[in-house]
C-alpha cells in the first residue's frame, strides 16, 4: 500500500535549509498539487504543532505530519521530504531530516499504509538509510525491501 501511494512526485529532496513551518508546507505541496488536500489541511498541521507541541516527531530525525480528515483531506495520500540540512521543531533539540506528510479521508482507510510505515520506521537502520538517499529509486528500494519482509512474517 505504501509503495503504491508513493509517487515519483511525492518524494522530494532539498539541500536548502527550511524553517519547520516552511518544511511542512513544502512537504505538503505534492498533495496540494494533486488536490489530495486543501491549504486548510496544511494550516491545521502547523496549528496543531503550535498548540500541542511537536508530537508529530515520531522518533529522532523523523516527523509524521498529518491533521484530521475533516481539516481538509480530499483523498488519501502520502509524501516524503528529505531535508539534507534538517529542520528543528519547537521544543526539540535534534533536527528532523525526514518528513512524511499524510492525509486520509476516513479514520480507517489508511491502516495498512500506517502498519507498513510503522514497521519501516521501527528499525533505526532504515531511518539512517532513508536519510542518505538521493533518488526516488533508492527510497523505493528500501520501502520495497521492508514490505517484502512484512509479507514473509
Amino acid at each position: 500500500m505504501l509503495e503504491q501511494m508513493l509517487y515519483e512526485d511525492s518524494i522530494n529532496f532539498t539541500n536548502v535549509s527550511h524553517h519547520w513551518e516552511e518544511a511542512l508546507q513544502s512537504s505538503s505541496d505534492p498533495l496540494l498539487k494533486r488536490r489530495i488536500i486543501s491549504q486548510d489541511y496544511v494550516n491545521a498541521i502547523i496549528r496543531n504543532v503550535k498548540e500541542l507541541g511537536p508530537y508529530i516527531v515520531l522518533t529522532d530525525g523523523v516527523a509524521f505530519a498529518h491533521a484530521r480528515p475533516e481539516d481538509g483531506a480530499l483523498a488519501s495520500g502520502i509524501t516524503l521530504l528529505n531535508l539534507k540540512e534538517g529542520t528543528t521543531f519547537p521544543n526539540k533539540e535534534k533536527p528532523v531530516y525526514l518528513i512524511f506528510t499524510f492525509a486520509a479521508v476516513s479514520d480507517d482507510s489508511h491502516l495498512t499504509m500506517l502498519t507498513e510505515l510503522s514497521h519501516l520506521l521501527s528499525n533505526p537502520e532504515n531511518i539512517n538509510r532513508l536519510k542518505n538517499t538521493e533518488t526516488y529509486e533508492e527510497v523505493m528500494e528500501i520501502v520495497h525491501e521492508n514490505i517484502i519482509e512484512e509479507d514473509y512474517q
Binding site: N48, F64, R68, P69, T115
Partner: peptide, 15 residues
C-alpha cells in the same frame, strides 16, 4: 492519545 487521533496513536495501539 495523540494530537489528531489517527497517526501516531494508531501506530502505538497496534504495537
Amino acid at each position: 492519545v495523540c494530537g489528531s487521533g489517527l497517526g501516531s496513536s494508531f501506530m502505538i495501539e497496534m504495537n
